[in-house]
């Protein structure tokens, strides 16, 4: 089980050639402070009256558990609430073919939180109460991934391994009371729930011709920002200017248990691709999350319940061979506001 409430900070002391922490080492090597250290104290947006409850877990898949010796969980995630109903949720899925991808995914997540938080603060989005224009966000996200990748390369250089040994995918969701920013490299899924209770997809996974082929942060193809996969650019970045009442992001190990991914049309002998969050699945969990929150569950209680669900919550999750990360954030609004919309 991996906890996601606190931002993991990868400790580089194990088997290290120098004794400084990785964070210090990067500051030293890059000649600057991590962006988050320079953030300003901002006032919350007065209009935000709800509370985000965000549950996340990264659990080993069945094939990782039963391998001899067991293969570590190659997924990692982090959830970082910010001021005024803003927050960041990030996950990385380490490549099965990369020997150090479990370390790569954990390190990448920890760095990505700092880099994206730095972007939010630097641009004063919270204080201004605004989301960037799509083209601005696209450029910022592309540059952010380049920065994170550069850090992975620096670690690889220091450890005398190849950067590709740390290969992982990445999905970033920045949630705000009035919209969502997403950007990703690789596969997995993400979606959000609008204020009418309808769930929508917010990314298209980057898949190759074969179903288990994808692209990673350490791949070279996307660096110029014009590479396309599955009909979308890598990274694919979106600005959703619609108030979310819930959101989700997940690694590909969870997708067929949570999304409608497709069906075979027997009549026309054709597979129909779908990318639709399962309304029934997410609404059921949303209500349960709201309910335990109302009963006074602590963050720790919620994370424990959530880890158990992602590990073995139903037969499909229990039998999934791949590692599984599932993050679900719900907006616990004031009762009156939900009543206004006729929701229970």
């Amino acid at each position: 089980m991996r906890r996601g409430l606190e931002v993991p900070r990868y400790d580089h002391n194990n088997n290290n050639t120098n004794n400084m922490s990785l964070s210090d080492w990067i500051k030293n090597k890059m000649g600057g402070e991590d962006e988050r250290d320079a953030r300003k104290v901002l006032k919350p947006t007065p209009s935000f009256e709800g509370k985000w409850v965000v549950a996340g877990a990264s659990e080993m898949g069945k094939s990782h558990k039963t391998a001899n010796p067991p293969i570590p969980c190659q997924d990692s995630h982090a959830i970082k609430p910010l001021e005024a109903g803003w927050g960041i949720a990030i996950l990385c899925d380490g490549a099965g073919s990369a020997p150090l991808s479990h370390i790569g995914s954990e390190f990448t997540v920890s760095q990505a939180v700092g880099v994206f938080e730095g972007i939010i603060q630097k641009n004063n989005w919270i204080k201004k109460g605004e989301l960037p224009q799509p083209e601005v966000w696209q450029k910022l996200a592309l540059n952010a991934f380049r920065t994170i990748r550069q850090r992975v390369e620096l670690v690889a250089e220091a450890k005398e391994v190849k950067a590709k040994d740390y290969a992982c995918t990445i999905i970033v969701v920045i949630y705000a009371p009035f919209g969502i920013l997403t950007s990703h490299i690789g596969d997995g899924r993400a979606g959000y729930r609008d204020d009418k209770g309808q769930w929508h997809p917010i990314m298209i996974p980057h898949n190759g011709e074969e179903a288990n082929i994808t692209i990673f942060l350490t791949s070279d193809y996307w660096l110029k920002g014009d590479f396309e996969m599955s009909g979308v650019t890598v990274p694919e970045s979106r600005v959703i200017a619609d108030p979310p009442t819930a959101f989700t992001l997940m690694s590909d190990g969870c997708e067929s248990h949570t999304f409608e991914t497709g069906y075979f049309d027997e009549k026309n002998v054709k597979f129909i691709h779908k990318n639709t969050p399962s309304q029934a699945f997410f609404e059921t969990l949303r209500k349960q999350l709201l309910s335990v929150n109302a009963e006074g569950a602590t963050d720790k209680d919620i994370q424990e319940l959530w880890s158990k669900f992602v590990d073995r919550g139903n037969t499909k999750f229990a039998n999934e061979l791949d590692d599984k990360t599932l993050i679900l954030g719900i907006l616990d609004e004031r009762e009156e506001k939900r009543d206004e919309r006729g929701e229970k």
């Binding site: 949570t258 497709g262 069906y263 399962s278 029934a280 699945f281 335990v292 209680d301």
Partner: peptide, 17 residues
């Protein structure tokens, strides 16, 4: 703790071959 475990039914999808 005493909270009820989360549970939800997953959708049925066509498996990749």
């Amino acid at each position: 703790m005493g909270f009820k475990d989360f549970s939800a039914e997953s959708p049925e999808n066509y498996d990749q071959k």
